[in-house]
Design a protein around this nucleic acid. Structure first.
Lengths: 348, 348
DNA sequence: TTGAAAGCGCTAACAA
DNA sequence: TTGTTAGCGCTTTCAA
C-alpha cells in the first residue's frame, strides 16, 4: 500500500548521521545521565531535526512491558464515569502511563472480550468496574496468574482479594431512607438493581436497616429490582401506582431511572414529593433538570479515579502492594433537593 | 518487580515442543492455508495447551503497523457520541481492528495532545470529530505526511481534503426554523455555538435563510453565540428574557442547553411553548425527560460511526481512497414534541 | 562516558 | 507443505 512513504527515522539514522553508536543515542534519548550533557543535547537536537519518533513496539518488546493501564468500565454515557476517567487520566498522565479505555455497555460478554483484549495487549495493570450482569470473575484470572495488578472501583466483587475503591453504599442507602423517614414517610419503596452487584445489595441493606431502626416494617411488595435504565423507570412507576395504598416515597438508586419514574408518576396525576417523595443516586446532571429537582447521593468520581490510579501506579513502581485485601472508602453525601421535601419549610 | 513470574510462552516454545520450525507455527497460528489442516489444528491445540498468547509488540514491529485505529472525539458524556462509538466498534471489530478512543473534553489543547499520542502509537488511521475551540488543524499534518488516512465526522473542517461524514446541518437549521415559522412564530431567537465549527455555522445559515424565505427579518439581537453547556443555557434564558418584546421562539442547537434554557424560562414564569416555543438538537435522552418534551433533530450516530469506520477500513484494505475530497451526508430528521407546538391541535 | 553485540518475538522471502 | 534465516527498532550487559 504505502510503498512510497518515507521510511521512519530510527536511532540508527541518528547514530549514523552523528557517527556515534545507537547505544549512546538510546541513552541520550532516555535522558540517561551517563551521557555527557553536551552530547545528550546534541543528540536530542538531531533527533528533532530528523523528525525521529520512538517506536513503542520495539521498546515494549525489548522492555517486556507496555507502560499502559487498561480501564474497564460499564458505561460511557454517565457523568460519574466521565469524572472517574478524568481522575484516572490525571494521575496516569502525570506518571507517564498510557490508558486504554474499554467499556462493556453493562454486558458481561463484552466485559470478557475487553479483558481478554487488554490481556493480549499486555497492559501493565487494570482498573475495573464490573458490568451489571457479571456473575463470574474467571476472566480476571489470567491477570492474577501473571501477577498483573488489578484494582476495582465502585462495582466491585467482595470476594476478590485485590484493592477496592468504593463508597459506603450501605451508609448511603441508610441515610437516604432515613431522610425519607424524617420527612414523615412510612411506606417507602425501593427501586434498585441486581443484588449481585455490591453497590445495589449494600444500598438495599442500608434501606432495610433504616426502616427497622425507625420501627417501620420492611415489605417485600415495596421492593422492585430491575435494570435501572429509562424503560425500567417507567415500568416501575406503573407497578408502584398499582399498589394499594401507594407508597409515600421511593428510593430509586439511579438518577436517570428516577427521572423517568417521576415523570411517569406526574403524567398519571401523582404529585412529587407530595404524594410520593423521590430520592435518586449519582448526582447526575439530569437530577437538576428534572422537575422537581431530584434529591440524590453525590459520588466523587474524580477522586475515586485518582485514588484507584494512584494505588495502581504506586504498586507498579514497587511502592505498595495492591494484590491483597484492602478497601478504600471514599466519602459521599446526600444532596437534598425538592423531590424529597414533604414539608416545604424544612431545611434544604 | 515480577522476577518470579512465569515467562511467556512464545512460538519458539511451541516449535521446540513439537519439533517443527517457528515459521510453521507462525503460519498455523495465522491460519495460513499453506499449512496442512492436520498440523495446523495440532499446532493451535498445543498453543492453547501451553497457554500461548501472541505478542503484538513483536508482530507490529515486524509488520510495521498496529492494526489499530485512533478515534478522536470531543466529548464522552453524550448519547450521540456513544452511538457513534458503537457504530465504529461494530465495523472495526468485524474487520479485526482495535480502536483507541481519545477524548478532548472540547479543548483544542487536549485534542493536540491526543493526536500526538496516537501518532506515536502508530495507529493505522484516524477517525475524528473536532473540539469546540479547535481553530487550527496543523496537529493533523503528521498523519498526512505519513499517508495515514484521516476521516472526519460531524465536526469537520471544510478545508481538509479528506473524507467527511456529516449530516446536512444547513437543512436541519432550515427545517427547524421553518417548523417554528409554521407554528406562527415571528421573532425566533437562535442560541448556538462558535461559527468556527461547521455544524453551528451551517445551522445558523439554515436558520437565516428560512427566516428570509418566509419574509421575516433577521435580527442580530436574536442571536446568541455561547458554549452550549448547561450554564450557558441558563445565561441565554436570562438574556432572552431581557429583550423587549421577548422572542416567541428559540432554536437552541443542543439538547442539554435547551433543557436548562427552558427550565430557567419556566422558573421566571415564561411558558413553553405558549410564550416561547423551543427546539433543541441531537435527540439526547434528556429531550424526553424535560417538560415539556423537547422538539429536536435526530442524528443517527450509530450509522455515522459505521460509515466512517467502513470507509477507513476500505481504504486500509486498498479498496478506496479516503484522502481526497469526498463528503458523505447522513440523513437526519426533525422530531416534533410538545416544546414547539403553539397550537395543540397541530400534528405531532 | 561510549561502543559492540545480543536478543526481545514475530513474519516472510527464499529455498527445499 | 515446511524450514532457514534475516531483520523490524530498541535497550542493556559487558567491555573498553
Amino acid at each position: 500500500m504505502h510503498m512510497f512513504d518515507k521510511k521512519d527515522v530510527t536511532i540508527y539514522d541518528i547514530a549514523r548521521q552523528m557517527d556515534i553508536s545507537t547505544a549512546t543515542v538510546s541513552r541520550a534519548l532516555n535522558n540517561n545521565t551517563s551521557i555527557s550533557e553536551k552530547t545528550r543535547k546534541k543528540i536530542q537536537e538531531t533527533a528533532r531535526e530528523l523528525g525521529y519518533r520512538n517506536n513503542n513496539f520495539a521498546k515494549n518488546l525489548r522492555n517486556q512491558n507496555s507502560h499502559t493501564i487498561g480501564v474497564i468500565i460499564h458505561e460511557l454515557v454517565s457523568s460519574f464515569t466521565n469524572s472517574v476517567l478524568g481522575g484516572i487520566e490525571k494521575i496516569t498522565t502525570e506518571a507517564g502511563y498510557d490508558i486504554i479505555i474499554a467499556h462493556s455497555s453493562e454486558k458481561m460478554a463484552k466485559e470478557i472480550k475487553n479483558t481478554n483484549n487488554l490481556f493480549h495487549k499486555r497492559v501493565d495493570g487494570i482498573i475495573a468496574s464490573l458490568a451489571f450482569d457479571t456473575n463470574d470473575l474467571s476472566h480476571f484470572e489470567p491477570f492474577k496468574e501473571k501477577n498483573i495488578p488489578l484494582i476495582f472501583f465502585d462495582r466491585v466483587d467482595e470476594s476478590m482479594d485485590s484493592t477496592k475503591v468504593i463508597i459506603d453504599n450501605y451508609r448511603c442507602g441508610y441515610i437516604a431512607t432515613k431522610h425519607l423517614i424524617d420527612q414523615g414517610c412510612k411506606r417507602i419503596a425501593i427501586i434498585t438493581g441486581t443484588q449481585q452487584r455490591n453497590v445495589y445489595s449494600q444500598r438495599f441493606k442500608g434501606y432495610k436497616d433504616a426502616l427497622l431502626d425507625a420501627g417501620l416494617d420492611f415489605k417485600e411488595d415495596l421492593v422492585i429490582i430491575n435494570d435501572l435504565n429509562a424503560v425500567s423507570g417507567a415500568e416501575a412507576a406503573i407497578q408502584i401506582m398499582g399498589l394499594n395504598p401507594i407508597p409515600d416515597a421511593a428510593f430509586v438508586t439511579n438518577d436517570l431511572t428516577a427521572a423517568v419514574f417521576m415523570k411517569k408518576l406526574k403524567e398519571h396525576g401523582i404529585a412529587v414529593p407530595d404524594d410520593i417523595a423521590v430520592i435518586g443516586f449519582n448526582n447526575d446532571v439530569i437530577s437538576q433538570i428534572v422537575e422537581p429537582e431530584l434529591t440524590t447521593i453525590d459520588y466523587p468520581g474524580f477522586l475515586m479515579g485518582e485514588v484507584a490510579a494512584s494505588r495502581l501506579i504506586d504498586h507498579l513502581q514497587g511502592k505498595s502492594n495492591v494484590n491483597q485485601l484492602s478497601t478504600i472508602i471514599i466519602n459521599s453525601e446526600l444532596i437534598v433537593r425538592k423531590s424529597s421535601l414533604k414539608y416545604r419549610n424544612a431545611a434544604s
